[in-house]
């Protein structure tokens, strides 16, 4: 609840809630992995960067589930679904990548080959 976060009362008592920590670390991970995603040219590295980025997003989502009224089930459900989706996407990416190598491609996409 970011809106409640900045109400004066909360702000005075505790600046860094668990929620905010989750969000900040999540944002940091997303930032790092975004650099990796666009900086790297090796396809495997980019797939890994995507996974890391996913973890960052999930961290933020899980963080939102922690508040005074107990654990909110909805973000938990969302993250579970999100992980399943990310795993299957990774599997597909790896399979296509393997096929790509097998068909004579290199570890980088054509446009990244200097």
């Amino acid at each position: 609840m970011t809106t409640e976060l900045f109400t004066t009362e909360l702000f005075a008592t505790e600046l860094f809630t668990t929620e905010l920590w989750f969000a900040l670390i999540g944002a940091l991970i997303i930032g790092i992995s975004t650099i990796g995603f666009f900086g790297a040219t090796h396809i495997l590295k980019r797939i890994m960067a995507f996974n890391l980025m996913g973890s960052g997003v999930f961290l933020i989502m899980v963080g939102l589930a922690q508040h005074d009224r107990g654990v909110d089930p909805v973000p938990q459900a969302l993250v579970l679904t999100g992980i399943v989706v990310a795993v299957s996407a990774t599997a597909l990416a790896l399979i296509i990548f393997r096929r790509y190598i097998a068909s004579g491609g290199q570890s980088k996409l054509p446009e990244h080959r200097s």
Binding site: F37, I43, A93, I96, F97, Y100, S103, G105, L109
Partner: peptide
């Protein structure tokens, strides 16, 4: 090789977009 490269490029773009 060409279609796999296209698929990988598409996949990476789509995954980033989804996140």
């Amino acid at each position: 090789q060409q279609s796999l490269a296209a698929a990988l490029r598409y996949l990476l773009a789509a995954l980033f977009g989804s996140l």
